[in-house]
């Protein structure tokens, strides 16, 4: 017994080091799995508050771009409105893109944005109080931004599409061929669409939009255009380099999309699997 105490006393620093290293490594490993550790994220009250204050200052630096973006979006919506033949039903006659009927949209503001690591996250001002829940899609007027990862009462974190763990169902707008949108961790202006069948006719400049297969994003949200086409010799699939419409390094206001039919879909799929 004496020896054990002596050992502990003599090596107290080493043991403390190993303990702390163990904790931090387990936090690291936890963060690599799908559902990340609960406490060490920028969605908590303290970090959210600090980022909000920092963003209050930083916001002024790119007001011009933000205003341009909002004005463009307004112009597009006005175009839809004015091109209606019947002015009486102007409000309700907006053409409904397919798949958007069952969707709720929340407004949120990006208060922190990282893009210099392999696993990038955004922090949003807006959380459970505003109706934002994990696994909702995040878009802005230009295209897809990411997927909500974690929420606290008034903040939430977003797994950006510039994250090597991210995988989003997407398709070629012209031919409706599906693939998965991933990021290879290299250039912040480009993402990769993999597993596109060779049957698809792909050409440089074609538009890539979200596919209707996921319950996170509605169909036909723009993502980017094809920049380069590679052929995977082993699998006979195309790998497409996609130039993103969004400048992921400069994000202001975003929209969080809730699919109201998500639970129904998931329940149905669960029941089908169990049979």
């Amino acid at each position: 017994m004496q020896q054990i105490f002596n050992f502990i006393l003599k090596n107290s620093n080493r043991l403390l080091f190993l303990l702390l290293l163990g904790i931090s490594l387990s936090l690291t490993i936890q963060s690599h799995s799908y559902h990340r550790s609960r406490y060490i994220s920028s969605a908590n009250v303290f970090t959210g508050f600090v980022y909000e204050k920092i963003n209050n200052v930083k916001e002024y630096l790119n007001l011009r771009e933000q205003n341009n973006q909002l004005a463009n979006e307004n112009a597009q919506l006005k175009k839809l409105l004015f091109n209606n033949t019947d002015s009486l039903t102007a409000g309700s006659a907006l053409p409904k893109p397919s798949g958007i009927e069952n969707v709720k949209v929340y407004n949120a503001k990006v208060i922190n944005n990282t893009f210099n690591s392999k696993e990038n996250y955004l922090t949003l001002l807006g959380g459970q109080q505003d109706g934002i829940k994990p696994d909702m899609g995040v878009v802005n007027s230009l295209g897809v931004v990411g997927i909500i990862e974690k929420t606290s009462s008034s903040y939430s974190t977003v797994q950006s599409i510039l994250n090597v763990k991210s995988q989003i169902n997407a398709k070629i707008k012209k031919s409706n061929h599906f693939g998965s949108l991933i990021w290879n961790g290299k250039n912040v202006g480009f993402a990769q669409l993999i597993d596109v069948p060779r049957l698809a006719s792909v050409r440089k400049g074609d538009t890539i939009v979200t596919g209707g297969r996921s319950e996170i994003f509605p169909e036909n949200i723009p993502i980017g255009t094809i920049d380069k086409v590679y052929i995977d010799k082993a699998t006979n699939y195309y790998t497409l380099n996609v130039r993103l419409f969004n400048d992921m390094t400069n994000l202001g206001h975003v929209y969080v999309i809730e699919n109201l039919k998500k639970q129904e879909i998931q329940k149905l799929e669960e029941e089908t699997k169990n049979e």
């Binding site: 702390l20 290293l21 936090l27 690291t28 490993i29 936890q30 963060s31 920028s42 303290f46 922090t123």
Partner: peptide, 19 residues
Amino acid sequence: DMFSNSGGVHAAACVTLAY
């Protein structure tokens, strides 16, 4: 780590350096 959403990466590096 909290600020950069990185799990325990900074903590591990700092503890190693300190040790």
